[in-house]
Design a protein around this nucleic acid. Structure first.
Lengths: 101, 101
DNA sequence: GCATTACATCGATGATCGACGAACATCGAT
DNA sequence: ATCGATGTTCGTCGATCATCGATGTAATGC
């Protein structure tokens, strides 16, 4: 798999990040990733077509939230640790609210 | 002016709220409102047409973030205090990040 | 009454969204 | 070399978005 685009965190706007987090499917992905580990993209069975999942992964990458590391036929996804430095408290706050909802 | 629609806070989803906050023009409106006072809608000169501003006001209402109170020919806009109970810390976190950006 | 003010709503436009299936690319295994 | 598995990308769809100008509406002022 060709390597994937990851924006510089400095070029990710708050609007980008919030828009990425505004979708419940994507928040579900992020919640899984909060265990701090890398997950194969196929781990996320969220009731959408595979191409749709790939679309959401792209949005999360572009929002600076996740990192995708292709390895062999698989694609390992994890949170970008620098996201928390760029937007402190945002992820924690949003995920906490989501869990309550 | 006919009275305006304000959703029950319980029926506002986190997705609704985040989508409302994902737009920079709307965040600019919210930031002004954090002084805790009511502002006439006309106070917000954000470089968009009047109809566009009205559209953003509607999105903020539907996101449960603001309250619009028509009085005479004017429309007084303020933050909904219950929003913070529904989504604790969200507004503060987002606005803090926006100010830094 | 009539004009003005302040805002909402309508209708249109072009962009983007989330969704899908199909096609493509890459890799591991046979 | 072929096959199957894993994901990305493409093309398309209907829906929604942000924007505008024009129109509608209700209250105020003359």
């Amino acid at each position: 798999m060709r390597s994937l685009d990851h924006p510089q965190l400095s070029s990710v706007s708050l609007s980008d990040a919030l828009a990425a987090l505004a979708d419940p499917t994507r928040r579900a992905i992020v919640r899984v990733l909060t265990d701090g580990r890398e997950h194969p993209a196929g781990d996320f069975d969220l009731g959408v077509a595979q191409s749709t999942l790939s679309h959401h992964m792209k949005k999360l990458r572009q929002g600076g939230i996740t990192h995708s590391r292709p390895e062999g036929t698989r694609c390992w996804v994890s949170l970008r640790p620098e996201f928390d430095e760029r937007f402190p408290d945002l992820l924690r706050t949003v995920l906490t609210l989501d869990a309550d909802a």
